[in-house]
Design a protein around this nucleic acid. Sequence first.
DNA 1: CTGTTAGCGCTTTCAC
DNA 2: GTGAAAGCGCTAACAG
Lengths: 338, 338
Amino acid sequence: MEKEVTIYDIAKRLNYSPATVSRALNDHPAIKLDTKDLITSMAREMGYRSNTFASNLRRQRTNTIGVIVPRLNSSFVSSVLAGMEKVANEAGYNLIISQSLESVTKEKANTQTMFNSRVDGLLVSVAYDTEDIEHFTAFTNKGIPLLFFDRVIGNDQFTSIVIDNAKAGYEATAHLLKLGRRRVMHITGNLKRNVYADRLKGYKQALAEYGIPFDERLVQVTDLSQEVGVEVARQITRMPIRPDGLFVTNDLCAVSCMTTLKQTGLSIPDDVAVVGFNNDPVSQVVNPALTTIHYPGREMGEIAAKSLINHLNGLMDIQATNTIILRSELIIRGSSQK
Amino acid sequence: MEKEVTIYDIAKRLNYSPATVSRALNDHPAIKLDTKDLITSMAREMGYRSNTFASNLRRQRTNTIGVIVPRLNSSFVSSVLAGMEKVANEAGYNLIISQSLESVTKEKANTQTMFNSRVDGLLVSVAYDTEDIEHFTAFTNKGIPLLFFDRVIGNDQFTSIVIDNAKAGYEATAHLLKLGRRRVMHITGNLKRNVYADRLKGYKQALAEYGIPFDERLVQVTDLSQEVGVEVARQITRMPIRPDGLFVTNDLCAVSCMTTLKQTGLSIPDDVAVVGFNNDPVSQVVNPALTTIHYPGREMGEIAAKSLINHLNGLMDIQATNTIILRSELIIRGSSQK
DNA sequence: CTGTTAGCGCTTTCAC
DNA sequence: GTGAAAGCGCTAACAG
C-alpha cells in the first residue's frame, strides 16, 4: 500500500511552494508555462492524484450532481440516465444516482444523503406516493438548484422538465376515437403524479370532444405493473359490455394486457384497440406492434443535466425558466389499426 | 443563502466540545444517552448537516463505490445497477456511476475520475475494445478493491463475478442441436470479451459433441446491435444453404433478426429456430417468444456490491475469492420449438 | 464519559 | 510569478 502523494511532496521535490504546485495543477494563468510543465510532469512521475475531498472542502463545491429516480430498472429511466451521464461527464461532473423504489421514505433518506454529500444540484423524479416537498426545502433554503423531471411536483415553485402529458393523453385517446372506438378504457397510475393526472385530463378532453360521456368505471388507477396488465385483461373478458379501446399509460403493462387478451381469444386490434405509453423496446416487438407515445427520455436526461450545469456555471437561471416542455409523439402501429 | 452550521456551532450552543458533538452524532458508544439526545435534537433544530468532505478527508474513506459500465441504457445493465444500488444504499454507501460507451478512452478517463474521487472500491464491466488493464493498476497499487462483473478481464489477477458463459453457450447450442438442427449460425460480439469468447467455446463444444464440424462462416462477430440483426437476416435469406438454427448472444439483436426473417417470409421456428441471450423483456413479448438464456442481472449487481462491501468491512477477502459464478438458465420458448 | 489537540490536503488572500 | 499562512469541518489519539 503506497503512501499518498500530495502537493507538498511535489513542492518539496521541486523546491516550490505548495501554492504554486496547486496553481500549476489547476492551470492557473499566473504561472509560467515552464513551471507548469515541470510541475505537471513531476506530478505524473510521482503518481500524484488530486484529493477531491480536500479540494471540495476548501472550495465548497463538489462537481457532483445528485439524481433520484423512482427505479433504475426501467427502459425509460435508463435512457434518461444515459443522457444525463453523457452531458454531466462531458462537463466534468459526477453523478450520484439513487432510487426511491417508489417510496417517499426512501426518497427522503436519499435526499438527505444527497444533501450531506453536498451535491451541487439535484435532479429528481418523485416516487409514487410523495405528497409534500418538505424534504427538499433544505436544498431551496441553501440555494442549491433543484430540478424536477418527468414526475414533477408543485408546478410553480420548482423548475421542471416534462412532456405535455395532457396533450399526449389527448392524442392517444383521440386516436382511438378517430378509429371509431367508443368505449375506451384507461389504465393509469397514481393521480397524485402529474404524469398520470395530466394524461387523464387529456383522455377526458378527447372524450368530451367526441361527445362521449366520461365513465368513471372505465378508468383504473393501478401500479401499472405487468401483473396489473394480466388482471385488467381478465376483467375485460368478464365484462358484460367490453371496451373496444384501451389506453394504458405504460408499455410493459399494455403489452402484458394485450398478450393476455389475445390468449383469451380476443383479437387485437379488432376487438380491442390498444395504445401504450413510452415507446419502450417491447412495444415494437410485440405482435401486433403497440401504438404508443414516444417519450424522449434521453433528451430529457440531457436537457435536465445541461440546464442544471448551465445554471451552476451562471450561464442560465433555471429558477427563471419555470417549465421546459419536450415534444412527445404518437407512434401508430398495428395494435390500434390494421 | 443560510450560513452553514458546523459541529462547532452546536458545541458552543450546548457548551460541549466539538469532539463530543461529533461522537454523539456518530452514535459513539461512549456518550451518555441524554447527551446524545440533546445534541441530536439541537443539531436538527439548527439545521445541521454533516460535511461529508471534511469527514472523508479526515477518515480517508468515502463510503462511495464507483461503477463503470459499458452503457447505461440496456435492460441488463439497469437490472445490475438496481441490484447494486439497493445493496449499497442499505449499507450506507453511495454509488458513482459512469458509462464507457464501449470506448477504452472513456473508460480510462472514468477510471481516473473514480480514482480521484477516492471511491472505496470499484465495480467494472469493461468496454468492447479494452485491451489491457493498465488503467486499473492505480487501484491495485493503492490496495483499492477492484471487482469485475460480466465483462471481466484477466481471469486470474482480479476477482470477477460472472455466469458460466461457456456452459450457457453450450446449452443454447445443444438445445438447437437436440431439436435436430444441423446448421446453427452464431452471432456474437468482440471475442476479446470473455462473455463472447466463452459462449463461442460452448457453441463449439456442443457442435463437437453432436459430431458437427465447426464452420467458421457460420460465426459472425458483430456489435450485436439491432441493425446487425436486420443485416444478418438479409444475409440469411440470400444464402444458398440457409442455417436452420440461430444463436444470437443478445436478445435485442436476436429479436430484430427474427422479425426481419419473418418479414421475408421465413417461418420461426420451422425454417430457423432462434435462441437469444439475456432474457430481456422483449424476449417474452416477441412472437414467437424467444428462447433465451436467463442472465441474473439483479443478483449479479447485488452480489458484486455485497462482496465489495463485505471486503471493505473486513468480513471477506475478495482477493482470495477469485471468481464467483452465478447460475444462468436456458428458457425455452416458441422461437426454438413449437 | 468528555475535552484538547493536531492534522487530513487543498485553495486563496495577501504580500512581495 | 511565487510564497506564507490560515482555515475549510471533521475525527481520533491521548489525556483525564
